[in-house]
C-alpha cells in the first residue's frame, strides 16, 4: 500500500489491523463474452463476497458484538456500502483514475462508462483524491472503516447510548493514534472525520447505481447483496 502506517500502541487500532480481511479477488465467468455484462456480473459477485467478509469483520470490531442483534443489523444495513466504498477507495490510492474493485480487477473510466458506472467512477475518484491528499495510512483506514459502521445514523437503533459509546471508543482510538504518529498536525483527526460526508454521499450514489442495475434485471445478483440493497430502499 502507498502510505504505510507505523506500529501503534493503541489496542483498538492494532486489533483492527489484525482483523482486517484479506483482499477479495474477482472471478470473471470465462463463458461470458468480455462485455459490460461480464464486468457487472463479476462486480456484483465480488460485492456479495465482500459483504460476507464485511459482516464477519464487523463482529470483530471492538464493542460491536456487545450490541444487541437488532442494533448490529441496523448498523450493517445502513453502513455496509460505506464500508465497501472505503475499502475500494483505499485499495485505489496507488492507481491513477482507476478503481481497484478487487485485488486483481481495476476498472478504468472507459470500462465504467460502458457499464453504466460513470457517475460512480467520478464520485469515487473525488473521494480517492481526498484520501490521497491526506495520505491516509492503513491504521487510519481501519479506524475510519469502523467509524463508518458505528456512525450509521440508522433510525432503527434501539440502544443509542451503546452505539454512542462505540463511536466514542473509536474516536478515542483515532485521536490516540494521531497524537502518537501525527503530532505535527493537531487537526488531522478532524480532517479525516470531515471526509465522512463525502464517503456517505459516494456510498449513496453506489446504492442508487446498483438499485438501478437490479431494476434492469440483466445481471444475476446474489441473495445477500439483494437483501442488503433492499434494506437501503
Amino acid at each position: 500500500h502507498v502510505f504505510s502506517g507505523k506500529k501503534t500502541t493503541n489496542k483498538v487500532v492494532s486489533h483492527l489491523i489484525l482483523v482486517e480481511p484479506g483482499e477479495v479477488f474477482a472471478t470473471p465467468d470465462p463463458s461470458l463474452p468480455d462485455s459490460d455484462l461480464r464486468t457487472l456480473t463479476t462486480l456484483c459477485e465480488l460485492i456479495n463476497r465482500e459483504l460476507l467478509m464485511t459482516i464477519g469483520w464487523a463482529k470483530h470490531v471492538p464493542g460491536f458484538s456487545a450490541l444487541s442483534l437488532v442494533d448490529q443489523m441496523a448498523l450493517l444495513q445502513s453502513a455496509w456500502m460505506e464500508v465497501l466504498v472505503l475499502g475500494m477507495a483505499y485499495r485505489s490510492l496507488a492507481l491513477s483514475d482507476e478503481l481497484a474493485v478487487g485485488g486483481n480487477l481495476a476498472l478504468c473510466r472507459e470500462q465504467c462508462r460502458r457499464s453504466g458506472l460513470l457517475h460512480l467512477h467520478a464520485a469515487l475518484l473525488q473521494l480517492i483524491g481526498k484520501f490521497r491528499k491526506a495520505k491516509l495510512d492503513r491504521e487510519e483506514f481501519v479506524v475510519m472503516k469502523a467509524m463508518a459502521l458505528a456512525n450509521s445514523d440508522s433510525t432503527h437503533i434501539e440502544n443509542t447510548e451503546a452505539v454512542l459509546s462505540l463511536q466514542d471508543r473509536l474516536h478515542e482510538a483515532l485521536q490516540d493514534y494521531e497524537s502518537e504518529h501525527h503530532a505535527e498536525d493537531p487537526h488531522r483527526s478532524g480532517k479525516l472525520l470531515m471526509t465522512l460526508p463525502l464517503l456517505r454521499q459516494t456510498a449513496n450514489e453506489a446504492v442508487r447505481t446498483f438499485c438501478q442495475i437490479r431494476l434492469e434485471g440483466r445481471i444475476p445478483m446474489h441473495k445477500l447483496f439483494l437483501e442488503m440493497l433492499e434494506a437501503k430502499i
Binding site: 460476507l52 459482516i55 442483534l69 448490529q72 443489523m73 450493517l76 441473495k223 445477500l224 437483501e227 434494506a231
Partner: peptide, 19 residues
C-alpha cells in the same frame, strides 16, 4: 428479521450456506 434473514443468520450463527 424475516425480510433480513440472511444478515440475521450470519450475525447469529455465521453459517453462510445459501448466499
Amino acid at each position: 428479521t424475516e425480510r433480513h434473514k440472511i444478515l440475521h443468520r450470519l450475525l447469529q450463527e455465521g453459517s453462510p450456506s445459501d448466499i
